[in-house]
Amino acid sequence: MTPGIIEKILETARDPDIAERIDRVSRANLNAYGFDAFGYSPDYMKSIVPVVAVFYRHYFRVTVHHMERVPTSGRTLLIANHSGQLPVDGAMLGASMLLDLDPPRMLRAMVERWVPTLPVVSTFMARCGQVLGTPENCRALLEDEECILAFPEGAAGISKTWDKRYQLQPFGYGFMRLALETGTPIVPVAVVGAEEQAINLFDWKAAARLVGAPAFPVTPFTPFVGPLGLLPMPVHYHILFGEPMQLVGDADDEDGRIGRLVRKVKHAIGSLVDEGLALRKGVFR
């Protein structure tokens, strides 16, 4: 370990700038006690974000490209590729919006239906502003001028196996209908690095059903350390933001037309992924 890394980690963990940035996040939708209707609390996040920042700065060493393309106010929909077995990509994207965007914005991610049924995790996610990904919830947040993160690949994306890394899985169409309905600009995002953070050899369907999870990834480490095999390796993250896309169309149009618009976004994300893969020097560097 490089000398001085401990000092750097402690410096990040104690960084007063982080709390100050959280204070600058818009509080327009919070009630007098500092919560919104989904249970999100920026004050709670002051104790979480420093820990995330340590991972952001020193473990994954996130490099952000084209941050200036992200709108700093108004309804926004970030659409990204999803991977990594554990939703670290979402956490790092959220951290980038808080730590590297000026003024900082709170990113509200849309989570799997499974999450709110879990003790501890459900509460933690709710306080950090994560919301169950139903169309009603998403619409409500967009109308409140929030910034939303959605992974249209869904569970198929996060639990993709090693041989499918950087291959975009089929996109859901729900995000596009909501964007058209609410007139929200879509910012395509590529997260490069996350796809290699854990090696999923195969998805053990029977075990997934047994524990009620959407997937049960088996990594080379699973036989030795069990679920700890899912913990991410220190890959170097690159996050690339694309130009906001203001698409027009009828939100209730047939799937074929919506699909064409979805492919535009998918294509934009694909090019950003390629751009990211080309500019990085290696998985860990």
């Binding site: 919301v131 009603e136 409500a140």
Partner: peptide
């Protein structure tokens, strides 16, 4: 009473 909407993991908000 508003409790009749029911509390479940996927209850929508608002």
């Amino acid at each position: 009473t508003a409790n009749l909407y029911g509390a479940s993991p996927d209850t929508m908000r608002y």
